[in-house]
């Protein structure tokens, strides 16, 4: 009894330390951006991996385009696979039954309205003085995936599409944003084993999958799309890989690391109690 209690305490301490490391690291990246200047993205720490990747030529293209291209293909396959009623179970592809009844559809509508509305409502407003880019709405994307599963992730996609129109960014690039935001919600939904935000495992899983992997994947997904459609969209490659990609990672990870665990801890019990939690609404076949 005493031994299990001390193991539990040790796990909590490890989870707390990991959470603190993530938050401190993200604040450090933010501090680095501010001290070097918003007009010098090439000098930011978070831009350096992209500078290295763009500098390497692999099979006729540069590293950033190649690595992101692989993630783009995988992300797109997952998006259409999940919507067509198939999912991963371990390394197998199995069928899943999402009812897509009035409750699922209203969950998607709720996620879209709240996510899109929240992003647009705070657009251009410095929530923290000097930090116009901090969007509290970003914290909702992984949360909707974690709580509502595919209906929530789809709502996040639609919400981002609406927010693009309200921010003046709507264009062909928004199609990349549509699936990119699905991925932000999908990664923690699918890869976290414990969605309760009440155990050390849940907290550690959230920071690894929901903050780190989801933010990086979303950013690379959209960046590849913008790069591939450069003749149509017209954004210079230097801007895409030297500013946009690192900025999206930082922007998503910053608010997600701080706000999402708090919202998840508060909202998980009422959502679960009312039968709206995704695991209580889908059936995996096979």
């Amino acid at each position: 009894m005493m031994a299990s209690k001390s193991v539990s305490s040790a796990l909590w301490i490890i989870a707390f330390i990991i959470a603190v490391i993530f938050v401190v690291f993200i604040f450090y990246i933010g501090f680095d951006i501010l001290t070097k200047g918003l007009d010098k993205p090439g000098e930011w720490i978070i831009t350096q991996p992209f500078n290295v990747l763009v500098g390497y030529e692999i099979v006729g293209t540069d590293g950033a385009f190649l690595v992101s291209g692989v993630l783009w293909v995988v992300g797109t396959i997952i998006f259409f696979m999940e919507l067509s009623g198939r999912t991963f179970k371990g390394f197998r592809i199995v069928r899943q039954e999402i009812k897509w009844d009035a409750i699922d559809v209203s969950t998607t509508a709720l996620s879209a309205a709240v996510y899109g509305g929240a992003l647009a409502a705070t657009g251009g407003i410095p929530i923290i003085p000097g930090f116009t880019w901090v969007r509290p709405g970003n914290a909702l994307a992984p949360l909707f995936g974690i709580l509502f599963g595919i209906p929530g992730a789809l709502g996040t996609s639609i919400g981002n599409f609406i927010a693009d129109a309200l921010a003046g960014y709507l264009g062909v690039g928004s199609i990349g944003g549509f699936i990119g935001n699905f991925i932000i919600a999908y990664v923690p939904y699918k890869l976290m084993r414990d969605h309760s935000f009440r155990t050390p495992r849940s907290i550690i899983e959230f920071y690894v999958w929901g903050v780190l992997v989801a933010s990086v994947w979303c950013s690379l997904y959209i960046s590849w799309w913008l790069d591939a459609l450069q003749p149509v969209i017209g954004l210079p490659r230097g801007f895409i890989w030297g500013f946009f990609a690192p900025w999206v990672i930082f922007n998503n990870a910053f608010i997600t690391a701080i706000v999402t665990p708090i919202l998840g801890f508060i909202l998980y019990p009422p959502i679960k109690a009312r039968g709206l939690y995704w695991a209580d609404r889908i059936r995996i076949i096979g």
């Binding site: 509508a109 309205a113 899109g116 929240a118 705070t122 921010a167």
Partner: peptide, 24 residues
Amino acid sequence: LYPIANIIGVVLLIVGLVLVLRYW
């Protein structure tokens, strides 16, 4: 764009939330 986009965002958020909660 602002504050028109902000206002529409707030309206969207409130209307969406109220409609779905009322339905639920």
